[in-house]
């Protein structure tokens, strides 16, 4: 099962606390996690984050994505305010079945896509049946 491959890190507090140096709010980006034959994909909505402001780290089984958003001017005269603006942060536990050294990322129109290749050993293989 894939829950063994990628799991959302439920308790991010211990990981994030030390690194938080900026003021303001941090949001969990909405994510899709889907599985292809040879890889897992994570799509994360990071609207307003420039490519150079996205940090993705993998360390000891923990994949962390972070997006920095420039604080917007608070002196604006808001007539309607339906959402807040702030940084993004989310972590995922990555299991043994993922080849962490080959994780790749791309971003387009505010959506980050992470490719997590499965290790050879867990890829589905077709076993040829010989007639005896």
């Amino acid at each position: 099962m894939v829950s063994d491959l990628v799991n959302e890190k439920r308790d991010t507090a211990t990981v994030t606390r030390a690194e938080r140096t900026r003021e303001g709010r941090t949001y969990l980006p909405y994510c899709d996690i889907l599985e292809r034959e040879n890889e897992l994909l994570i799509h994360a909505d990071l609207p307003g984050v420039r490519t150079e402001d996205i940090d993705i780290n993998y360390e000891r089984g923990l994949l962390t994505l972070q997006g920095r958003v420039d604080p917007r001017r608070e002196d604006r005269r808001f007539l309607m305010r339906e959402y807040g603006v702030g940084d993004y942060h989310r972590s995922f536990e990555v299991g043994e079945g993922i080849d962490a050294s080959r994780i790749e990322a791309e971003v387009k129109d505010g959506v980050l896509t992470l490719h997590l290749p499965k290790t050879e050993s867990i890829r589905p293989r077709k076993i040829a049946v010989r007639s005896a």
Binding site: R10, D11, T12, A13, T16, R17, R20, R25, T26, Y27, L28, P29, Y30, E82, Y83, G84, G86, H89
Partner: peptide
């Protein structure tokens, strides 16, 4: 959408 659901650092664990 995510408005109204801030993960404030101070309450990070609980909000998460």
């Amino acid at each position: 959408n995510r408005y109204g659901l801030p993960m404030v650092d101070r309450f990070g664990r609980e909000m998460d």
